[in-house]
Design a protein around this nucleic acid. Structure first.
Length: 315
DNA sequence: CGATGTCAAGGAATC
DNA sequence: GATTCCTTGACATCG
């Protein structure tokens, strides 16, 4: 089992940037981003980290309709991209990407749909330019519901099938925290065959069918093709003290109490006991784990060391 | 330097 | 039909 983390790096004293986030006036950005990524790969190699998510912001404005001067960034950086990809392959590093929620493949608004396609084409082309194998996937969400979920799912499936093969073969679908539960993404998988990513925190938030983690893992993992190792997203829920003020009915006096509220956001760290329990639940399934925590690589490294202490083998 | 505004992009709830 | 929230972060600007 590989463990990975997304985006920026906290474990080098300060923060290692993962993409060029300056405004468009400072573009083009991809070459700068690739410089950052090379530094990050140095770090991954030193720490023997074998999985990493590249920010979908690596090439800002590359599909922006009004900034055509930035549309050729992949071609312009072809050599740098190939070099970076070669480094990743030599290190056995599994890379992935995760377009943000503005990418809505199933939108009924034509303009939005077209924008989503442009964005997904970019992600596929980027992975291809790195020369990465089929385990380098692009994780997407189901999109909107638009008042009729079944119809929206069918639209997703039809549009997935219509994507160019080069793009489609990278795509995998993740359950989200509001609209598309594990059961829903299973339905989309049934319609079009897209492999599924289980996000454990989203599953806690959005689980109308009350599937256990074990059940969820066992329906999601087998959706991956033979020879491509599945992966999941794992994070612990942030626990937060929230003060609640109410007025006493009899006296009119204000009463403030503190309640521990489970907010369904990523916690700073991963709870090792919970994670180990999840692994035991999911056994004997095999998969990689993307650790999503506020403390990024630090959380992943802490979890890895905890697991090794317990004799659980982790790459 | 700290506070505040802004960013390409959508959806959904609310009025 | 228009407005606001959702929600992440960091740059950019202002005082």
């Amino acid at each position: 089992m590989r463990l990975g983390f997304p985006a920026k790096v906290l474990g080098r004293g300060g923060v290692l940037k993962d993409y060029d986030s300056r405004r468009w006036q400072s573009g083009p950005h991809l070459r700068v981003s690739l410089g950052y990524l090379n530094t990050i790969i140095d770090y991954l190699a030193e720490e023997c980290i074998t999985m990493y998510r590249i920010s979908s912001n690596v090439a800002p404005y590359i599909t922006h309709p009004e900034l055509p001067q930035f549309h050729n960034q992949i071609e312009e950086c072809a050599e740098d991209l190939a070099h970076l990809g070669t480094r990743a392959r030599r290190l056995g590093l599994r890379l992935s990407m995760h377009p943000n929620h503005y990418t809505v493949l199933n939108s009924p608004v034509e303009r939005v749909y077209e924008g989503a396609v442009r964005d997904l084409l970019f992600h596929g082309a980027f992975m291809d330019a790195l020369g990465l194998g089929p385990e380098a996937v692009v994780v997407v969400h189901g999109g909107g519901v638009f008042g009729d979920k079944q119809l929206a799912m069918e639209r997703f499936a039809a549009r997935y099938e219509r994507l160019p093969e080069q793009t489609r073969r990278r795509l995998v679908l993740e359950n989200d925290e509001k609209s598309y539960s594990v059961q829903d993404v299973c339905e989309i998988h049934r319609l079009c065959g897209i492999p599924l990513v289980l996000d454990t925190l989203h599953h806690r938030t959005n689980n109308p069918g009350e599937l256990s983690n074990r059940e969820a893992a066992h329906v999601v993992i087998p959706t991956w093709p033979q020879g491509v190792r599945p992966k999941i997203h794992y994070s612990s829920a942030r626990q937060e003290d929230r003060s609640i003020t109410r007025r006493d009915r009899a006296t009119g006096e204000r009463i403030t109490s503190v309640a521990a509220a489970l907010r369904f956001q990523h916690a700073d760290w991963v709870d090792t006991d919970e994670f180990a329990a999840f692994l035991a639940d999911a056994a004997p399934l095999a998969f990689d784990v993307m650790v999503e925590a506020k403390r990024k690589d630090l959380a992943m490294l802490r979890l890895r060391s905890d697991l090794r202490e317990r004799g659980i083998e982790v790459k």
